[in-house]
Amino acid sequence: MTVHTQKKQALLPVVVILFWFAQYVYIPYQTPYLLSLQVSETFIGSILGAYGITQLLLRLPIGVMADSVGRHKGFILYGTLAAGIASLIRLLFPNGYEFLIANLLSGMASSMWISFMVMYTGFFPEEEQQKATGRIILSCNLGILLGFLFSSLLYKYFGMDLLCILSMMAGALGTLLAFFLKEEKGKGTFSYASLRSLKVCLNKKLILFSLLALIQQGVQMSTAMSFTTQILKERGASAFIIGLSSIIYMASAVLTSGFSSSQRAVKTGPKVLIPFVFLTLGIYCILVPLTPFIPVLLALQFLPGMATGILFSNLTSEAMKGIPAKMKSTAMGFYQAVYALGITLFPMFTGNLIAGYSHLTAYTILALTSLIGAAVSFGYYCFQKNTSKSFFS
């Protein structure tokens, strides 16, 4: 490995940390802040949903465009810049409609995540893709964790304005550093002929692991990132404890992302890790609504963190395995668009179940969905082991 390649590998994770810090530092307090501005809960739902809807619509087209031009630096620059500008809008125009516009812009920024991942994994040979994916997701999770830590420490004393300023600063610094990223020269212009790369979306293995990621992301967004905090509040947890639960979740994601990029995880392999972690996610969904003790609920937050760190890394590397380099951005766009559907729909479905029935009913269905993920992935690897030709190739 050349010194030049080592520098590229070191710089991009720093940009990733800054990017996701900019995207998440204000998130834990976005809803209470909007409520303090007298924004209705219905409109807040639209504001939150705008972030996911934008990604759902943009990720596949951006993947096709990235494959067409054969370069990623420009998309990364757009992403970091948009993340900072979105928080500038929040700072200057603190009202519901401007937050809606800002979240649409933040969703566009997150759609550029395709290029971050494809550029970084492109630095590594095929046999090291799981390790590379684990490392870049580790950087992503570290940025989010730092955002949660800063917001938990500062919001009470300085409010949303400072969080938006920190987001802007991180976006600006990320944009500055991204200018120094180096990549091989691609075609540089969009060609409609590149739409042929859309045929990769028919890859059966890509579809399978995209759907598994939809389950994983949807379950986590519906539990650890949303309704588990409501359960904690009903158990009598303070705002500090609720913030601590998010920190434990993300700290677990960071630690287990580090494990997923280790040689031990590579040796264990996705055939063991994917079904096992889906199983633990199902157990989490069963235990959370049944547990009356706050310390136990906090400890359980380690399990969805493990799903973010280990399960998501392995699902991503498996989805991309065997995809030709010239179609990788399109494949990543399809993969991310599918799991964005889970991020958007699962919380809505869960919220309706909680309103109509109970947390126990909703979490039981999420547990069954996770166990389906475990069974399908286990069956897939058993099939792979017992046949020389994969049905999903």
Rank of each mutant, 00 (worst) to 15 (best):
L37Y: 13
S246I: 14
G171R: 02
I89R: 06
G63E: 00
V200D: 06
F293G: 08
Y155H: 10
T54A: 15
L181D: 03
L300P: 00
F293C: 07
I114G: 10
S110D: 12
S261P: 01
M225F: 15
V16W: 04
Q230T: 15
L202N: 06
L195M: 12
Y157R: 12
L345K: 07
N203L: 03
P324R: 01
S87R: 00
L77R: 13
Y157F: 12
L281I: 04
S370I: 00
S152T: 10
R71A: 14
L153V: 12
I76A: 04
N203Q: 10
G305E: 04
Y24E: 12
E128I: 03
Y78D: 07
L287V: 08
I294K: 13
S260W: 02
A83P: 07
A172C: 06
S87Y: 04
I365F: 10
L173S: 05
K7L: 09
Y155C: 02
K271M: 11
C201W: 00
Y335H: 14
F93L: 13
V39Q: 12
T364A: 06
A102W: 07
A362P: 10
M117A: 10
A331W: 04
Q263V: 11
W113C: 05
H4Y: 09
T308Q: 15
G322M: 09
A82F: 14
M320K: 11
M117R: 00
V25M: 11
P304M: 01
L88E: 04
L303F: 11
S313A: 10
T5H: 13
L104W: 11
Y97F: 11
L300Y: 08
L287D: 10
P292H: 14
G171E: 00
M332V: 07
Q55C: 13
A319T: 05
P32W: 03
S197M: 02
G322Y: 11
Q336S: 14
M112H: 01
M327F: 03
S167T: 07
S46I: 08
K385A: 05
S210E: 02
C201E: 00
L18C: 06
P289H: 10
N386H: 07
T5S: 15
D67R: 04
L341T: 10
Y51Q: 11
Y120T: 01
